[in-house]
Amino acid sequence: MSLFSKSGILGKELKISNEEFTQLRDFIYDRSGIYIADNRKYLLENRLANRIKKLNLKDYGEYFYYLQYDPRKQQELNRLFEAVTTNETSFYRNPPQLKVFQDKVLKTVLDAQKAKRTKSLRIWSAGCSTGEEPYTLGIILHEVLGKDISQWNIKITANDLSEAVLMSARRGIYTDYALRTTPKEIVRKYFEEDGGKFKVIPEVKRLVSFGQINLNDKVQLKRVERSQIVFCRNVIIYFDDAVKKQVIGSFYDNLLPGGFLLIGHSESLHNISRAFKPIHHPGAIVYNKEG
């Protein structure tokens, strides 16, 4: 996500007042659960200046009014969410955690399903950004199951707050930068190269279903099909403790007994939830819903 330091309106730097910051910060929190601390006022100022310029508005106060009353406010709300979240991601991000997912978590879940004589698997990628994470999970499933994957009923539900990143995710076309952490043999096997771009093959794409969701909306979260595995990496860092507890509680409710939650390597459920059993592996902590 690029940062903008000034709006350039009439050649003057556009500054956000304390009152405007409070109005916009509270509005964003109310609509998305994303909390912007007082010491990050500059972030809001920088990232919204370009929107104000684009809409030909005078200041942040007019922008706040626009978000509430303009007929195009819903489209702008999507732009606002894009501006205040960072969509830095890649395929095969955090390989040690993905190895634990492949060798430990996935094996445990698949073995449990086989023991029940059912071959149904549901994975939820909450905060999927431009699709690299859910497609990576789809590729890993192909690697683990091989030809047997056709015998399984698999669905990876992938959600994000931003409709723009979801549009990109649905296309499934990426640059080599998105594949910078991906093994070369995986790229050759699961992507079609065309003019320097890399397209996810249909066999992987069909496993993933994309949709917009607001993790601060408990009603929306209850509609998500129950899962054996939930991925929510580098998302809860945007929330304050109250929203973190609510979101993690929703993940717990969504998970089937024995299910697993994986969060970002820099994130922790310490002081957020005691409902999960943390399982420590080299390079990753996995949270288990016992049952």
Rank of each mutant, 00 (worst) to 15 (best):
K116R: 10
P71G: 01
N50G: 03
H265G: 11
D160K: 06
D148E: 13
R171F: 02
T157C: 08
K99I: 06
D103W: 11
D59Y: 07
R206C: 07
E163T: 03
F260W: 15
K245H: 02
T130E: 12
K53W: 03
N56M: 05
A112V: 06
L98G: 02
K244G: 04
L141S: 05
A49S: 14
E163H: 00
K12H: 08
K53Q: 09
N50V: 06
K289M: 03
N153I: 02
T175H: 11
L10C: 14
F198W: 14
V224F: 05
S162M: 00
A158C: 11
L256T: 10
D103I: 12
S209W: 00
E132C: 12
V204A: 01
I248N: 04
Y190G: 07
Y69F: 06
K222M: 07
P71C: 02
E82T: 02
G127F: 04
Q212T: 01
F260N: 12
D253Y: 06
Y135P: 04
I237H: 13
K197W: 05
L145N: 04
L24G: 03
I34H: 01
P95F: 02
L207S: 09
F81A: 00
P95A: 10
P282K: 09
K218T: 10
K184D: 14
L67G: 00
N288Q: 15
K155Q: 15
I34L: 05
P95D: 03
R122T: 15
P95N: 05
E132T: 09
G211D: 09
T175W: 07
F101E: 09
I139A: 12
F260H: 14
C128D: 01
T181L: 15
I156E: 10
D253T: 13
G8K: 01
R93W: 14
I285C: 13
G264I: 07
Y238H: 06
Y252L: 07
L262K: 10
H281D: 12
P202D: 14
F64D: 01
I9P: 05
P134K: 10
S5A: 04
T85N: 04
F210R: 00
V165N: 04
T136D: 11
D111Y: 02
T175G: 15
Q97I: 14
I139Q: 07
I186D: 04
Y92C: 12
E45S: 07
G211S: 13
N87M: 07
I279F: 09
K114Y: 02
A158T: 09
Q113H: 01
